[in-house]
């Protein structure tokens, strides 16, 4: 793959810390896009605010870096107004599920064909390490100096309950699996959610004594397993990876085209 064909060299170096998992997500995403042979002019990347959201600036697609939590709302306007475009929406965990939680569940329900990627590093990195709705109980953060008493969401469960027609989970350790999942998500004709467990060694790892970036990735390997694996039966605490839901329900833009067809007929 000619990586330089997909990035804006002018805007490098990127701002991510050494060891950050977000670069791996970018890598896998570009490989997925390359393998799908997608036309760059038909690709729009819409992101919100946070470390993860800077990903849209580095890619040579149409890129819309928006407001904290609102990426899916902007993306809805882009996609519905021009359904032939492929829309990919990378978000952080706080971005997607705290301030953007309402937009997130409604996007799941509405089923507009676009791909939401939740780059879940369980922390607000850009602002220096506050707990997020995905940090989890007992975690240390700058705003939880006595330990976090907030319980976390399960992104997969939440997306499924909210009606997303494609839901998957992977991690930065499983970069090749991530490529494959991204490809399936992008090709899915409906709203797809991919949660990627990503490491923030600077703010999450250090404060929670999780070791280096490599150690954190190692823990993704040790604490996750493929959906329905034997390992899960033996150790129910393992987090499952893979595609949880793939269902064929009416896609919003296609449904709206039918409304247009009917309205125009009625007019004649």
């Amino acid at each position: 793959m000619n990586i330089k064909g997909y990035i804006r060299e002018r805007f490098f170096p990127h701002l991510w810390c050494p060891g950050c998992g977000h670069g791996i997500v970018l890598n896998s995403l570009l490989r997925a896009i390359d393998q799908l042979g997608m036309n760059k002019n038909e690709l729009v990347m819409v992101s919100g605010i946070g470390c993860s959201s800077r990903i849209s600036g580095y890619v040579d697609f149409h890129s819309l870096h928006t407001l904290h939590g609102r990426a899916l709302a902007f993306a809805t306007g882009v996609k519905l107004s021009r359904p032939e475009l492929n829309v990919i929406v990378p978000m952080g965990d706080g971005d997607a599920l705290a301030i953007g939680g309402n937009h997130f569940i409604h996007a799941c329900r509405r089923n507009i064909a676009m791909t939401a990627i939740v780059m879940n590093n369980r922390i607000y990195g850009m602002t220096g390490g506050q707990f997020s709705p995905l940090s989890g109980y007992g975690i240390q953060a700058t705003t939880a100096p006595y330990g976090n008493i907030d319980h976390d969401f399960d992104v997969v469960q939440l997306s499924m309950s909210a009606g997303a027609s494609f839901v998957a989970r992977t991690t930065t350790y499983h970069a090749k699996e991530m490529i494959d999942i991204f490809k399936q998500a992008i090709l899915h004709d409906g709203f797809s959610v991919v949660e990627v467990l990503s490491q923030c060694p600077t703010y999450f790892g250090r404060r929670n004594k999780m070791g280096s970036a490599a150690d954190m990735m190692e823990s993704f390997k040790n604490n996750t397993t493929r959906i329905g694996s034997k390992a899960k039966e033996e150790n129910p605490n393992l987090l499952e990876r893979g595609v949880f839901v793939r269902k064929d329900i009416p896609e919003y833009c296609a449904e709206y085209d039918k409304i247009i067809g009917n309205a125009m007929k009625g007019h004649k």
């Binding site: 819409v46 149409h62 819309l64 928006t66 407001l67 609102r70 709302a73 902007f74 993306a75 809805t76 306007g77 882009v78 996609k79 519905l80 107004s81 021009r82 475009l85 309402n102 937009h103 409604h106």
Partner: peptide, 20 residues
């Protein structure tokens, strides 16, 4: 499109404006 709130509404029109 009827959005989930007014925040989403203005964001959606900005997205649609950008596609022309």
């Amino acid at each position: 499109i009827q959005m989930e709130d007014e925040i989403a509404s203005i964001c959606a029109i900005v997205g649609a404006s950008l596609t022309g």
